[in-house]
Simulated scan of single mutants.
Amino acid sequence: MCRWLAYSGSPLLLERMLLEPEHSLIDQSLNARLGAHATNGDGFGVGWYGEGQMPALYRTTRPAWNDPNLAELSRQIRSEMVFAHVRASTGTAVQQTNCHPFRYGKWLWMHNGAISDFQKVKRELVLAVAPDLYPEIEGSTDSELFFYLALTFGLERNPPAAVARAVGFIEQVGQGHAIAHPLQMTVAVGDGRALWAFRYASSGRSRTLFYSSDPATLRWRYPQNPIFREIDDRTKLVVSEPLGSTRGVWNELPNAHSCTVRNGGIEISAFKPAASI
């Protein structure tokens, strides 16, 4: 499937999180250790918040390890919130509009996982998208449709509740088609001020997700590490798999849980699908 990274904190060059770590997202595009596939070469994307009212996107179908433009951009772009994703398609076309992250207004969305038997349930899921949102769907992935279902169910008002309703609806539709395990997911969504991440699977065995430890503690433990000196205390990373092997940096988010990163703090909560109506 895919690997992703979501960053919130002090303004940081993209290269510091995307290119330089021991097991960077670029390395994961070739050599993922905890994903369903070792190679994630069906495109990649980066979304970041800067001067404009909407986040910027750079997405391409080229493999992340083979795009010199990514290195050029990463040396110059500095942001307080970054979403990055390397894709392994679960069956939909390799095209730019299918590359994550997806954007709607100020919102960014990334997904690792799949809606099971997507072609069986696609029509019913599409028809549930709000009519005013439907024209905004550009690609053909289950991930983008999942995003627009969450928007339909109130993402802009209450992200955790909307994602829970979208998951509940997908499971309801899937079960109506005798699909035993309708959804596998880790999801990140953000609005430039806060980010939310979710780990869940209908089967109970979800893909991995990790969040970073408190920067002040890391500076105390590793005073010579330059990246820990560079970031401030509000900095948090949520990742599909750890970016390195330094002890104490990464904490696994439990299955069927979510985390909210806001104002430098992180809140961990249990996650449960909710009825969509």
Rank of each mutant, 00 (worst) to 15 (best):
L30F: 06
L30W: 06
A32T: 09
A32S: 15
L34Q: 12
L34Y: 09
G35P: 04
A36L: 14
H37K: 10
H37G: 00
H37D: 05
H37Y: 13
A38V: 03
A38F: 00
A38Y: 04
T39F: 00
N40F: 03
D42V: 01
D42W: 00
G43L: 02
G43D: 00
G45Q: 10
V46E: 06
W48D: 11
W48F: 15
Y49G: 12
G50A: 14
G50Y: 03
E51I: 15
E51F: 12
G52T: 11
G52I: 08
Q53G: 14
Q53R: 12
Q53I: 00
M54G: 01
P55C: 02
A56W: 01
L57I: 09
L57T: 06
L57C: 08
L57K: 06
Y58H: 05
Y58R: 00
Y58L: 06
R59A: 14
T61D: 08
R62E: 04
P63Q: 07
P63M: 07
A64E: 05
W65K: 12
W65S: 15
N66M: 12
D67N: 15
P68I: 13
N69W: 07
N69R: 09
L70Y: 10
A71F: 03
A71M: 00
L73Q: 11
S74R: 02
S74W: 01
R75F: 03
Q76C: 09
Q76D: 10
Q76R: 13
I77W: 11
I77E: 14
R78L: 13
R78Y: 09
E80L: 05
M81T: 11
M81W: 09
V82C: 07
F83S: 07
F83A: 11
V86W: 06
V86Y: 07
V86P: 06
R87M: 03
R87T: 05
S89M: 02
T90Q: 07
T90E: 08
G91K: 04
G91I: 09
G91Y: 10
T92G: 04
A93L: 12
A93Y: 11
A93V: 09
V94G: 02
T97A: 14
T97M: 10
N98I: 05
C99E: 01
C99L: 03
H100A: 13
H100Q: 15
Y104M: 04
Y104H: 15
K106S: 15
W109E: 03
W109H: 12
M110K: 05
M110L: 13
N112E: 11
N112V: 10
N112D: 10
G113Y: 02
A114L: 14
I115P: 00
S116H: 10
S116W: 07
D117M: 07
F118Q: 05
Q119F: 04
Q119N: 10
Q119T: 09
Q119P: 02
V121R: 08
V121T: 14
R123T: 13
L125Y: 07
V126W: 11
L127Y: 10
A128T: 09
V129C: 04
A130E: 13
A130V: 03
P131Y: 03
P131V: 03
P131Q: 04
D132I: 05
D132E: 15
D132Q: 14
D132P: 03
D132T: 11
L133Y: 13
L133F: 10
Y134I: 07
P135S: 12
P135E: 10
I137A: 01
I137D: 06
E138G: 00
E138C: 02
E138H: 06
E138A: 10
S140W: 04
T141M: 04
D142T: 00
D142Y: 06
